[in-house]
Structures are given as structure tokens and as C-alpha cells.
Design a protein around this nucleic acid. Structure first.
Lengths: 101, 101
DNA sequence: CGTGTAAGGAATTCTGACACG
DNA sequence: CGTGTAAGGAATTCTGACACG
């Protein structure tokens, strides 16, 4: 499951405009912008307009699923922060004990 | 070097507008459109406007290199057709003899 | 809270054409 | 042949705001 650097970068390169993201996710541009306001996605800006990565698109699809289940943007944000904390902790443990994942 | 289907698709999904492709390749929109006219790239259309994949971007970078070396669009096209013929022939041989690549 | 919409402006993209060479 | 540019129009995106609830 290893991917070369070039291949990997496709997933994270922010090159997709909001209209296409809207088509890809089924979310309205309004919703997509609102989720940014709530700090759930972080597009780049290219001359004023938002640019998203495929990773962002995946993230937005997860958000859409959770919203359908009635999860609030605040709760989604909490969950994200929590997962980030866990990943950082795991990273620290790896650094200390040279664990293999 | 195997990549899952999701990962793979990022490379070929046509989601990038011409302005971003221009930034990514250093080519002008005019040049990019011209190379399409010469049948060197084949963007999709989303409501009238061209959409490119990362594979297209790579292809355009190769074209840019060749053009700098003085290769004409006609010659580049010939080379592409030739490579396609070879790949198709190889595919046929695989089908017949169950060769492993 | 989450989303729709109308508003006005700025930037993008499209095509066909003329220019140069 | 390959590329720049001005032209006019259409579609996109942006922001801040009002609306509903």
C-alpha cells in the first residue's frame, strides 16, 4: 500500500474550485463555505477563490454523512480535534519508542 | 507500487480548470488550448469549461519539455500515436500468452 | 444553527479572429 | 506553425446581508 511521492501529492494538492467540489460532494457552495467558517475544511486561496484537494472533498463527504445523521458542525469539530490529539500522541510515542505501525 | 482504486482515480479525475493548469505547468491558457486543438490533450468539459486531470498536467509538462527541445506538435502527436500502438500490441500479447509484466 | 437567496462586483473562461512570421 | 492579444459574452466566485427558524 505504499505510494510514491508524486502519486501521494495528488490527494493533497489544492487545485479544485468550489463549483467542482459542489458537484463531487453534492453539497451547495453555501454549505461548503459555511463548513469552512466552522473550521471543518481549510481550502487554499488562488487569487481570491477557494481551492480544495481530493482529501478536502473526502472530508466534506464525511461531514455530509455526519450532518445527515444529525451531528452538529460543533460536534464534528470536536471529533476532529480529538482525533488530531490522538494522532499527535501516537506520533510522540513512535518517536520515543521507535514503534512500528 | 500498487495503489488502491480511490488513490489511483485522483490522477485521472478531470477536475482542474485551465487557469490552475496554467499555473501548474507554466504554459499560457492559449498554449494549452492550442495543444488540445493539435490533439495532444483531451480535457473534459464541465458546463462549457475545460477540466484537466493530474495526468493531463503531467502530459502537458512533457509537451512543454519537447517543445523547448524544438519538437513540433505534429511530431509529438506522432510519438504519442506510436507509443499507443506499442502499448496496445503489448496488451494483446499479454492476453494471448498470459505474460506477467 | 444551518442554509437559501438576491445583489453587486471582480475575475475566469470561451470562441473566433487578426497579427506575426 | 505556434503564440499573443483585444473583443464580447457567459458563467463563476466572492462577500456581507436578510430570511427562516
Amino acid at each position: 500500500m505504499m505510494v510514491n511521492r508524486q502519486e501521494e501529492s495528488y490527494k493533497y494538492k489544492k487545485v479544485i474550485s468550489i463549483g467542482i467540489v459542489s458537484e463531487l460532494t453534492g453539497l451547495s457552495p453555501r454549505q461548503i463555505r459555511y463548513y469552512e467558517e466552522r473550521k471543518l475544511v481549510f481550502p487554499d486561496r488562488s487569487k481570491g477563490s477557494r481551492k480544495y484537494s481530493f482529501a478536502d472533498v473526502e472530508q466534506l463527504m464525511r461531514i455530509a454523512d455526519q450532518r445527515e445523521e444529525g451531528v452538529s458542525t460543533y460536534e464534528i469539530r470536536q471529533e476532529m480535534t480529538k482525533e488530531l490529539r490522538e494522532r499527535m500522541l501516537k506520533g510522540q510515542m513512535n518517536a520515543h519508542f521507535r514503534m512500528r505501525s
